[in-house]
Design a protein around this nucleic acid. Structure first.
Lengths: 223, 223
DNA sequence: GTCTATATGTGGATAGAC
DNA sequence: GTCTATCCACATATAGAC
């Protein structure tokens, strides 16, 4: 092994191993010893390059979330310009979902999709803090876009519908294996294009059903 | 404290404390010490009543999943009889979702909904094993019902649509707090009736969109 | 059944040699 | 930068007194 010659260096090998093992066992389910062994580096190296296990976990996210956020921002900005600020909901969904599934086609990116999906409902406060911090700024801009795309929905309606949108996206990214058990192992969720092609029509239809609750007048914003 | 007089006994207090703490920190994120302290029992009692931490975790699930499964089975059976084996997809969704949200209105039941939702994509092999084992038998009967309700969908289409259904249900049950951060703290997911009222129309619309993939002829079953 | 005390293992993190 | 050796906190689980 010649770290500076062939293959990724120790830091990248640590990030790759951590990405996979956190995805498969969760933050608390895997030890630094296991991660460093898989990465082929000494235990002490993990604390040399990263200050702690939590920082390593955060670094795994930061490496992947940046590009996703940048793609989402670019697509949203282009969409808003093209639609004069009144986008179709299906287009907002597309700008939100495509970067989440397409971003990077490396093998590690697939592991990260699982990690991200699974972390999105991980109860551990450490995990939640990191996930929210990295995804929320861009997500809140999409919430605004959804409001503009669905001006007849009350905040409450929007809240429940976005729960379905987030839940569906997250469940597919998490790829828990449950539905393969129920429907057959030949099926799989790892194809980003298939995920996009199936999720967008389903979620668009859901977002477009007539309002359930009555819209409070004082919620209305000027357009 | 008089265990046999007022209030729940040590086993129930352990189950209640474990339910809450597992929901809030995950299986690996909380120790038996913390659980027994919260339950007001000695550490050794946990290993006396339950053989291990994993058995305690399983017992938490078994206490709640039994009634949900029974309700689901009853509703499904009644639906199939009423519809002569060709149910409307919205009715299948109702029979699947209502028990998951209504089952028991005790405060503990709300914590369990979070635990169950969060556990459904928990990466830990121990957690996955228990969740699948307890929910799968009834869930696979619902998969059959969905097939009958949507006979024009290919297995692949059904797979992706059920991912959205499972994902939405799970995300609402998990109640990660993410959407409250994005839309406002006055909103909440803890009202079972509101969850049902919003999820069913959304998911019905998604299930009813025209097929995306072409249906393979050799998938067709006699009706 | 309920406690104290403890066995036994593993975790994250670090000191300090090279 | 990279290693060995180790500190120390905390985990699960149990033995054994009462």
């Amino acid at each position: 092994m010649y770290p500076n010659e062939a293959g990724p260096d120790a830091q990248d090998r640590l990030l790759d191993a951590a990405e996979r093992l956190f995805a498969e066992h969760g933050f608390h389910g895997v030890s630094l010893r296991t991660i460093t062994t898989e990465a082929g580096v000494n235990l002490a190296a993990a604390n040399y390059y990263f200050r702690s296990k939590e920082v390593l976990f955060r670094a795994v996210f930061e490496r992947r979330v940046g590009p996703v956020n940048a793609d989402r921002e670019a697509l949203l900005q282009e969409l808003m310009a093209r639609s004069a600020g009144r986008p179709a909901v299906g287009e907002v969904l597309r700008a939100f979902l495509e970067p989440a599934f397409r971003a990077s086609t490396s093998p590690g990116a697939e592991m990260f999709r699982k990690l991200s999906g699974r972390s999105s409902v991980d109860p551990s406060p450490e995990v939640r803090r990191i996930v929210y911090e990295l995804y929320d700024p861009v997500s809140s801009r999409f919430v605004d876009a959804f409001k503009r795309a669905c001006p007849d929905l009350s905040r409450e309606d929007l809240f429940w519908r976005l729960a379905s949108v987030f839940g569906a996206m997250m469940y597919v990214r998490a790829d828990s294996g449950r539905l393969q058990r129920l429907l057959g192992d030949d099926l799989n969720m790892s194809d980003p294009e298939a995920a996009i092609a199936h999720l967008i029509p389903f979620l668009t239809a859901g977002m477009e059903v007539p309002p359930i609750t009555t819209r409070d007048e004082n919620e209305r914003e000027s357009t």
